[in-house]
Design a protein around this nucleic acid. Sequence first.
DNA 1: GCATCGATTTCGTCT
DNA 2: AGACGAAGTCGATGC
Lengths: 242, 242
Amino acid sequence: MTAESAVETLSHPAPDTARDLVERAIDRGAMVTLFGACTVEYQGRAASSLGLGDRHVTLKPDGTALVHTDEGQQPVNWQPPGCDHSVTVAGASLVILSERTTPDEELEIAFETVAHAAAFDVSDPEELAVTGTEADLKERILETPDLVEPGFTPLATERETPAGAVDVYGEDAAGRTVVVELKRRRVGPDAVGQLNRYVDALRRDLHAETEVRGVLVAPSVTDRARQLLAEKGLEFVSLAPP
Amino acid sequence: MTAESAVETLSHPAPDTARDLVERAIDRGAMVTLFGACTVEYQGRAASSLGLGDRHVTLKPDGTALVHTDEGQQPVNWQPPGCDHSVTVAGASLVILSERTTPDEELEIAFETVAHAAAFDVSDPEELAVTGTEADLKERILETPDLVEPGFTPLATERETPAGAVDVYGEDAAGRTVVVELKRRRVGPDAVGQLNRYVDALRRDLHAETEVRGVLVAPSVTDRARQLLAEKGLEFVSLAPP
DNA sequence: GCATCGATTTCGTCT
DNA sequence: AGACGAAGTCGATGC
């Protein structure tokens, strides 16, 4: 990150010229972008094929590959971090190959035409700071347990059960065990199923005479989720992250 | 998508020059990319702040915004399709603002330095064709129901229950109701919870004397998922998408 | 518009 | 490496 960051660009380069730039950029750990008409083939956990069209391709120094069309937030094709990228010229085409193992996956991008190629030297020392997450909601409850209900006492977070870890584990004013499942946003049936699994597991694990309550804490619930809560004898408390 | 796709680029432009290019590109429905040192602020469903660093920014004609660092497949910040993008100059900075309503969300990218700016005219007539999905697994079972078990007869797909839609609904050789939940890959406790919700719901809905079996079809299960299946009296059949 | 669920989910954390 | 659950998840479908 400098006032004059190192940038190398080519407009409508010949395949050989583009290959040289991409090869050098990958070698020195730069970020590469390509734009042009290409086809994309993927094989791995699934398989896909994409006919000729204009796309924007990004190769990151960590081994990520992204193929973006003009629509959508998600790339139309991609490869996760840790892949090996290589570039070759096949006839008049520039071919990008991105591969990895465990699982075996391969992404091939064949540019019939490269309209633009660029290499960027990237320096990014900063970490993203996010608020409004489930972790923030948990802290809020640990600071003010009464928000769950008067007399609630947290005893542990991430307490392990045979069905997984409970977000907040505690007891109510009457000494009954309380399992709290937190969600940062409006919840559906899946969250009720999750809470129910934990309550079930603890009822099995703890002594038979121990009463176990399950409380779902979230900003709101859907109708179906509320129905499922009622059927399972579980409770809901409306609360959002700070 | 032409042999000479329209591409406009600037290296180390002045803020005003970059603003003009970005503004014109947005107006004509082109894809915009920017690279340089910037800060990013987000407020909406959550909130985040990102200090100064080199990033690659993409603005798509459908209103998507993406901010990528040198690491990770996911953008460090973003805005989904449907947002309004605007560009202004504030002092020496180029500021990109991306906004939407329902929910109210705002992303502000302030470039201290623009190392590169580009506008791409995109034409992409092709649709992605994917195989190896859950839908492919479903088709496989409908074609050859014996893969679930000899004598299995599918009666409906996406059959509605009070707990959600069942992937494949049918009956076994003895006439018992069978609920099949499909997963394209190895499954954990969540899938068992899902299947259990459907089975529970149907046992309530159907007459008391009707026996309901639940079968999870996936390539494999985790130990915990297998344990939960056993506790709930549910079954597992190993099968992968074609 | 909301609800539900799949996804080549990705990502972080912990075992 | 695998398991488990969160995510500003996104995206597709149905109501």
